[in-house]
Amino acid sequence: MSDETIRLALPKGSLQKDTTRFLAGGGIVAEGYEDGRDYRPKVDIPWLEVKVLRPQEIPMYVSQGYYDAGITGLDWILETRSGDEAEVMLDCNYGRVDIVTAVPDSWEHVNSFDDLMNLPDEVRISTEYINLTQDAVLRTTGVEPTVLTPWYSVRRHRYSNVVLILSFGATEGKPPEDAEAVVDNTATGSTLRANHLKIIGHVLSGSTARLVANRGSLHDPAKAELLDQLAAMLEQSAALPAGEASASLGTHLV
């Protein structure tokens, strides 16, 4: 065994509890991780270094090679368009959410993403998933929507009646005054229902936590061996083998 180490990023937030259990099932104890008091949990494996980051950030850190591997949701791997440089090694099969489109439940005439796109007036969509939503709009209408974020803006009001507005949270509270629709993650739909929203389509179905690895690390023989070992340990913990649990981009858009 070489002196090589693997830097692993673990998610902070809603995935934390399940990730602790998932790691334990593979024989890895991350001390101080579950209760959130330590951003640098101790692990009893000499070749493994662990750091806690937001799940939204993990795909970028891994794809850039700042971390060799990370555990984060498929939704954020796709949203950050990190798939080219970050390879999914394992479907961890927990933290299942759907990324859905929802509108006010009083809108009887809008029951699909197509219906929403075909509304004659401006359609403002509040979302944290700007890229996934933009892809969905493009695939449905063929026309680029207007996108408003603090970092960049695309102005296409003249060509498209769809406006995507970046949400920094509390997305479900935006309609009807500040958005006509939301694209948000949901496990059971109860939060959306409580806010008088109804689901009219899935942008991404069955997003679960995934173990991702930097492609450069996978091409380094010493790191690849350790990453394979890590995946093998954790694979025992996943209820189903990798790939069997399915996630798919909304089929109504294809």
Binding site: T146, W151, Y152, S153, V154, R155, R156, H157, R158, Y159
Partner: peptide, 17 residues
């Protein structure tokens, strides 16, 4: 006019659009 304003390819560098 809107036809041109809404058709520009924009990018930001050094905080200038």
């Amino acid at each position: 006019g809107d036809a041109i304003r809404h058709s520009m390819f924009t990018f930001t560098s050094e905080r200038v659009e």
